[in-house]
């Protein structure tokens, strides 16, 4: 297991793949004047899986949001799939996020006004990529949701909704898949199953996987760990 202490000022992956999915350097984020994240250096190689561990409030979600270009860091550099986020405009950052980043928020939010299939197609639309119904159906089928395309989210179980959210996150074959606390509310069996799905889907589309969690059950399955210290008050 490769473990990186975020305070140590080092921590690059072993492999130098063609292009890292995520590179972070000197990242500092402040919230209401308080420093909530300080990450000197971190690199996620293509296709790698990482856990970001740390206590609640340490900045795990903030790191994911910064990596997704949803939050602008106070300082530092973030490169996603080779593109420096600070050098591009907001609209370009949005488009990059749509194409290169798959995001699984802490609360698996599906749009209730849309069918299961449309919840996937909307990700293609938002990213500005051509609509590919066949791809959407095949991802749903791979996640055991064949035949549920026309259903509304409220007709699905929580587990099924989780799989739809995962399908939506990988539909555009992102370079980087970011999952925020995907297993925290699951029992052991479902936790293992959810992690299997995440790893298999990330592998299937060649995405690097970053899981922000405080769920230590995942440590055995994910070899690379970034540990964030508790936030300084």
């Amino acid at each position: 297991m490769l473990s990186v202490d975020a305070t140590a000022g080092r921590g690059v992956t072993g492999d130098a793949s063609p292009r890292p999915a995520l590179e972070v350097e000197g990242l500092v984020h402040r919230y209401e004047g308080r420093e909530v994240l300080d990450l000197p250096r971190w690199q996620v190689g293509a296709g790698e899986a990482w856990l970001v561990l740390g206590p609640s409030g340490c900045g795990k979600s903030t790191l994911l949001h910064c990596a997704a270009g949803l939050l602008r860091a106070a300082r530092g550099s973030i490169r996603v799939a080779g593109t420096e986020l600070a050098t591009i405009g907001a609209a370009e950052r949005d488009r990059l996020r749509g194409r290169a980043v798959g995001l699984l928020p802490q609360r698996l939010h599906l749009i209730p006004a849309l069918t299961v299939l449309d919840n996937l197609l909307v990700a293609q639309f938002a990213a500005g990529v051509p609509r590919d119904r066949a791809r959407a159906r095949s991802v749903l089928a791979a996640l055991g949701l064949a035949g549920r395309e026309a259903d509304r989210p409220e007709q699905l179980s929580v587990g099924q909704q989780q799989r739809v959210a995962l399908a939506r996150a990988v539909i555009n074959r992102p370079a980087l898949l970011l999952a925020d606390e995907p297993t925290s509310a699951l029992d052991d069996a479902n936790c293992a199953s959810a992690l299997d799905l995440l790893l298999s889907q990330a592998a299937e589309c060649g995405a690097a996987l970053v899981i922000a969690t405080h769920d230590r059950r995942l440590i055995d399955r994910v070899p690379r760990v970034l540990t964030l210290p508790a936030s300084r008050s």
Binding site: A68, L70, D94, R95, R97, G98, F125, A126, A127
Partner: peptide, 9 residues
């Protein structure tokens, strides 16, 4: 969520 999926402002 739409914004997180890449929809511009």
């Amino acid at each position: 969520l739409l914004r997180s999926l890449g929809l511009t402002r």
